[in-house]
Design a protein around this nucleic acid. Structure first.
Lengths: 330, 330
DNA sequence: ATATTTATGTTAAACGTTTTACATTGGCAA
DNA sequence: TTGCCAATGTAAAACGTTTAACATAAATAT
């Protein structure tokens, strides 16, 4: 019994249906010059059969897969989620597919991701990894975000040093005189660590009292709240300005202080980092240093797909800005 | 000049290096029976050349791509982000790749996603779509989450009706006598709409005063806050129990009421929906009805990849539970 | 009228696998 | 020695494309 409709018609079927050769069909599909009459015949056949290009065959032949791997530790942190969202849209708008790889901060998984990329002949990787020593190998093009993997691998990040500076300046300008910088950070040397340096340099040059509270991301978080608790005396918090490493952390601090009736921004002003926006109200969750996430994504994709501009070891540093979100006096 | 190291060695290279045939190499790679001596020779050659299977060639031949598309509107809502995180991990653990497609709630993009799936001969789709009338066509296997696309497409969701019931019961048991249900919902008939029915059925059978505040997700959100404002009189909110459609919405409401000095949970108790966890403190952002997101992901992947169990039009409904998160009295 | 160019199509080889059908070898029974 | 079987390996076709090299016919120039 002959099947009435072929579920997966191939170019050969289209050729037969239209009475033309395989090559002609291919030309029509790829927009190469073909006689008008033939083109119409082919198009009709394609429509009739519901033909769809088989990208695997195409990739095999042309050695171009139009797919890019996104290697990230998790999607449970909004910064990663936002970034992935933007990266994916950016790739899709250029006709590329995004292969998502979640590594869970696991060096093994990160390493395996790169093997996968190679074995799937993907066109490239955009990676945000945490292993200190990742075997990258050449033959795949990589762009990292916020991490320096290797001398000649371009890295896209926001201007973290400047971000730290901005936060410190703003707090000081708004009248704060005793500052606290809270950060949860990883042991790997990544771009975000520069926020601290920026913050401290301003405090020092302006001669402002400050403290840096550092916690590694593989340690339990209680110490941070313990610290806060210890510095509340008679309903007053010892510091009048706080800069947090992320909006998420800021949110926690806000909550903690509110519960203890420390008023923000009256008693303490607070600036976060990232620029996370509440989807519902389209407003920032706190005053913050906003990273240009969409622009970072766009740039990363751009560099990955157009390596012509000689940005081999380029370190693209995109501008951040301060935005008010209710946790500062302005 | 002969290249010293071949960047992309193929099975042919391995065959040559080991002095054996292509077929033998293939057998070794696929774990088929092969003489011990030959196997070792091949393995040595593979290691020496750094050979990696070309999955595109393999997919072309075997018609199995080991890739699944994840079609979602956005990653900017934590529920979607969490779900994507779990889905991806679930797929990866089974050796599948996750192709992420962000549709931005755009029907066109949703439709195109399905075309892409077909053209890339992907093994399936897990979709969370918003178009009322999506042309699915057969020949691709689909599992939806929270949406009913078609009679014979399995749908995985949490028990939304029960979730609504649970929330109402809890609030009433904790002493609330005037309830408010706030929802932002889409026009498409999706599973989450059942929360309302569950909530109302309990209120009615227990004879409790309640109001339902409904807003479409394509309308501006101000009316909701306007409503809240209108129902605050002399520092008292008219309702003593609120059930929100999502934790995100709940967060907004909490903030709004706090700013107006309405105390939660003393004056008003509040239950959200989803079970979003703050990454930092590993605690719920509010009292909530928790969806078993990881289990939903696991189930969806399972059904998609093992269609043997006759779950053609299956409607898998996973249990939800109430968890306390500080915005209720218990 | 013939030669030359141009426009359009076609054939067939490749891409890197998998897999069926076939070939070789050696061991063993008769 | 001959014949047979199992064990192991090989050759070659196939998957659905792309593309270089070639063929044909029509159109123009000589």
């Amino acid at each position: 019994m002959k099947r009435e409709t072929n579920l997966n018609p191939t170019m050969k079927d289209v050729a037969q249906e239209s009475g033309l050769s395989l090559a002609t069909v291919s030309k029509v599909i790829n927009g190469l010059p073909v006689g008008k009459a033939s083109r119409q015949k082919v198009e009709a056949a394609i429509k009739k059969l519901g033909y769809q290009v088989n990208n695997y065959a195409r990739a095999l032949k042309s050695n171009k897969t139009y797919s890019v791997a996104l290697v990230l530790p998790s999607l449970k942190h909004p910064f990663f989620a936002y970034l992935t969202d933007e990266l994916t849209k950016s790739l899709m708008s250029r006709g590329y597919r995004a292969i998502l790889m979640i590594t869970n901060y696991d060096p093994d998984a990160e390493q395996k991701s790169f093997a996968m990329v190679r074995s799937n002949k993907m066109d490239g990787v955009i990676a945000l990894t945490y292993s200190p020593d990742l075997e990258v190998g050449d033959s795949i093009s990589i762009v990292t975000i916020d991490r320096h993997l290797d001398e000649d691998i371009p890295c896209v990040s926001s201007d973290n040093f400047r971000g730290g500076e901005l936060a410190a300046k703003k707090l000081i300008d708004l009248g704060c005189r005793k500052l606290l910088f809270m950060r949860i950070t990883s042991r790997i040397q990544g771009e975000p660590n520069k926020r601290c340096a920026g913050f401290e340099s301003v405090c020092q040059s302006r001669n402002i009292d400050y403290e840096t509270l550092l916690l590694m991301d593989d340690e339990p978080e209680e110490p941070i709240f313990q610290f806060l608790e210890n510095h509340i005396h008679d309903g007053e918090f010892e510091y009048d300005g706080i800069f947090c490493n992320s909006d998420i952390l800021a949110g926690q601090v806000i909550r903690f202080l509110s519960e203890r009736n420390i008023s923000i921004p009256d008693q303490v002003q607070l600036i976060g980092y990232d620029g996370i926006i509440d989807r519902l109200t389209d407003s920032y969750v706190c005053s913050t240093i906003e990273q240009p996430i969409a622009q970072m994504a766009e740039t990363a994709v751009n560099i990955l797909l157009n390596p012509d501009e000689n940005n081999a070891g380029a370190n693209i540093c995109l501008p951040v800005r301060y935005v008010s979100g209710g946790t500062t006096k302005e």
